[in-house]
Design a protein around this nucleic acid. Structure first.
Lengths: 239, 239
DNA sequence: CGGATGGTTGAAACCGTTCAAAATCTGTGG
DNA sequence: CCACAGATTTTGAACGGTTTCAACCATCCG
């Protein structure tokens, strides 16, 4: 099963041939080199993108250069199920590492939504979870200390990567620099570095050469005040 | 035209009888007293809510009591077009002031989406804008100083309220306390108070007895590094 | 080997917090 | 209409988390 299908399947069972369709849709994937924008602020979006390999991010830059990363786009993530309805991109999406990204046309999406209820439902679910993640990030930025905040992000990424099978055991690759972590957490590079050292020194997590190793998961969750409910990974529904 | 219709109409023209339908839908509105939850974290959502008068907010509380407000729900705002798909609320929605709120059933929404394309499109648009606001708040919390951040929020609320006709001239009612402002901006109450005094002293904005008076709009926008594009109020589209 | 990128360190400065108390406002009942 | 209680705003001072600046070190790679 391709990684996109694997993620969507966590939101509920797909129809028999949905999987096959997904295979076809991602056949056109291309590689975006590290650092390149997949789509930029001000662009008029036409297609959607699905990340298959690598790591991308959604970000905004203030006029004076301050940058804030708004979301990580991991393998299996659809970049914008609906932002493409809007006239103009109000933010950019860039590849952090070289990333394999498939392009899905607007028409394809419209076809899916009119003909494939299970798949449509799964796509929806994905966007709802993305929104829930945005909310939790707001809480992290507003009310968690740097220490808690970084711990929280690691918890989140671990669970998200586990779902798509990219995290194995207690470690996962997180191919971002500390500068990017700083732009994600609303912190300075220097402080990120110090917090990571603290977490390492306390035997909670190590972050070296782009790999996160969780040494004490229980402790990490405590520090982060982590409650996984916002990721809605159980796929249950109320309907 | 009721306030909900007025807001939706900014996203594009509605059909002749859409307006009439909206009138019917909000006929059941009830008042939630100030401080009361409209729906709480952990609840299994059944219906949607539309704020017609007053001011509500979406918020989360950490186990130790720290609170973060994630969104303001102003007159004309639909609380959760889709969160109701999820099994369990991962956050709460509470009335800040006494608020008149209508309840819309899930079935009604399904009916609209299957039979009223213009209205459906407008509802969608609204959720996209809500998401864009979340993104901008992340930027504000992560990369703007307290001073810029508060200025930015005032710019945003002014434009949002203007659309629904609740802001007249250069002032609008913002019936929140400084404590709530602090919980929104990820700041302490004391610091919010000082920033407000600074803005007042500089002749930029005044915030007294729940009313915001913008004295120097140009200056305010400059301070906030405000770019209104994320509110997507032009209603234009790319489709 | 040299240059570039990313990580680490130290010290000083600053923004924002905390604590604690006073002042002001608001609504309510007498 | 006043008095009082509670909520909200304001003030001062000390503290601390985080930033900034400015190096220095490590690693990778051609």
């Amino acid at each position: 099963m391709n990684i996109w299908a694997r993620k969507l399947a966590t939101f509920g069972p797909l129809a028999m041939d949905d999987e096959r369709l997904l295979d076809q849709l991602i056949a056109n994937a291309v590689i975006f080199p590290a650092g390149e924008d997949i789509i930029s602020q001000g662009d008029l979006p036409t297609d959607l993108h699905v990340v298959l390999e690598g790591c991308a991010c959604r970000y905004k830059v203030l006029p004076d250069g301050r940058r804030q990363i708004i979301a990580f786009l991991l393998p299996g993530d659809l970049c914008d199920l609906h932002v493409f309805l809007l006239r103009e991109m109000d933010h950019s999406i860039g590849a952090i590492t070289a990333s394999r990204v498939a392009t899905i046309s607007r028409d394809t999406i419209l076809e899916i939504t009119s003909q494939r209820p299970q798949l449509t439902r799964a796509l929806w679910w994905g966007t709802l979870v993305d929104e829930a993640i945005l909310r939790e990030w707001i809480v992290a930025l507003g009310r968690r200390t740097a220490y808690e905040r970084i711990a929280h992000l690691i918890c989140e990424l671990y669970l998200r990567l586990k779902v798509v099978g990219v995290a194995n055991g207690q470690s996962f690759e997180l191919p971002i620099t500390q500068t990017e972590l700083a732009d994600t957490m609303g912190l300075s590079l220097v402080h990120v570095n110090r917090v990571l050292q603290r977490l390492r020194g306390e035997g909670v997590v190590e972050f070296q050469s782009r790999t996160v190793i969780i040494r004490d998961a229980e402790r990490l969750k405590q520090i982060a005040l982590f409650d996984p409910i916002y990721l809605h990974q159980q796929g249950g529904t109320n309907a």
